[in-house]
């Protein structure tokens, strides 16, 4: 027995005029297509990339992209030491994908568990867990990241650990508040009266009811995770120097910003595009699954 939203909520989609159908179709298929391109580029970077992403060729430094007077040898040009930007973007996509693939499901699982436990058990468990969430909200994670990065040296592992620590509390708070209202509902009480254990109720009654919320946050979290990874790499505490990551590429592009636009614009645009895609997909899901969550993001 599963129940969805508390009351049927009237959702009015917001295009009162214009060709509604193709817009709505585009609203989903365009982000999906871009997401797919990103996924393929990252997964198949070794096979698809035209060059070795860290191959330095000083004779070809700062070659412009093909649409700005360059050649097809380097379709998106080269950076200040002659590395192929397209290949670096693809390998950078892989770094972002790895981070997303570990952090998003990981923090969702942990945050959901904490949220359910504190909502269901209540009492001192709830108090302690929620104070931990408070601490986390007050500790500027970016500073913590810089601190950890300076101690253990920049590495992908640090980035992943920091992002895991940073993102789980969002799930925990939302899931907790949903569980708080669910536990008083008739179907939970009935189930308890029939002798169901806490674990059973959580699995069979609570989880199906919060799964929408979790999926929506996970989608919106993709863009955040990718951006934070880039920001940490930009500050020099993310992935090690030399690794092809979008944040690193922006740092390196900054040095030659005045003479060449592409080394800083292209990774920035990649970051912007993928964030847009994640947010649009999250919005789309939210409008359809749970419009009450509009305040997220």
């Amino acid at each position: 027995m599963t129940e969805r939203a508390a009351a049927p909520i009237e959702v009015e989609f917001s295009e009162p005029r214009g060709p509604i159908r193709w817009r709505r179709w585009l609203g989903l298929s365009l982000p999906l297509a871009i997401g797919l391109v990103f996924l393929l580029a990252g997964v198949l970077a070794d096979d698809l990339a035209p060059h070795d992403p860290s191959f330095i060729d000083l004779s070809a430094r700062l070659a412009p992209p093909v649409f700005d007077g360059g050649t097809w040898d380097h379709p998106l040009g080269t950076d200040d030491v002659g590395r192929d930007i397209l290949s670096r973007l693809m390998h950078g996509a892989r770094i972002s994908l790895i981070v997303v693939a570990i952090v998003v499901p990981g923090s969702a699982a942990f945050g959901t568990l904490v949220g359910m436990a504190s909502g269901w058990l209540g009492g001192s468990t709830e108090q302690i867990l929620m104070r931990i969430v408070d601490v986390q909200l007050a500790l500027p994670a970016i500073l913590f990241a810089v601190l950890l990065g300076s101690i253990f040296g920049p590495s992908l592992r640090n980035v992943i650990i920091i992002l895991l620590i940073w993102t789980w509390s969002g799930y925990a708070r939302l899931v907790r508040s949903e569980v708080l209202s669910l536990r008083e509902r008739d179907f939970t009480t009935a189930s308890r009266a029939l002798g169901a254990g806490g674990w059973w109720i959580m699995r069979k009654h609570l989880l199906p009811n919060v799964v929408n919320t979790i999926v929506i946050i996970m989608t919106l979290e993709v863009a955040i995770v990718i951006q934070v990874e880039a920001a940490l790499s930009f500050l020099g505490v993310g992935v090690p120097a030399g690794t092809a990551s979008w944040g690193r590429m922006i740092t390196e592009g900054r040095e030659v910003m005045i003479v060449a636009w592409w080394p800083i614009w292209l990774p920035g645009l990649a970051l912007l595009t993928i964030s847009l895609t994640g947010n649009l997909m999250g919005d789309w899901l939210r409008d359809r699954l749970d419009p009450r969550l509009r305040h997220l993001h």
Partner: peptide
């Protein structure tokens, strides 16, 4: 002015504002 030009412009600004990395925007 829902669904009109102002609305469209504001929403475009919001979508881009939320997706643009601040450090990259700063450099730009």
């Amino acid at each position: 002015r829902r669904g009109r030009f102002t609305d469209w412009l504001a929403r475009l600004l919001a979508v881009f504002g939320q997706a643009t990395p601040s450090f990259w925007l700063g450099l730009m």
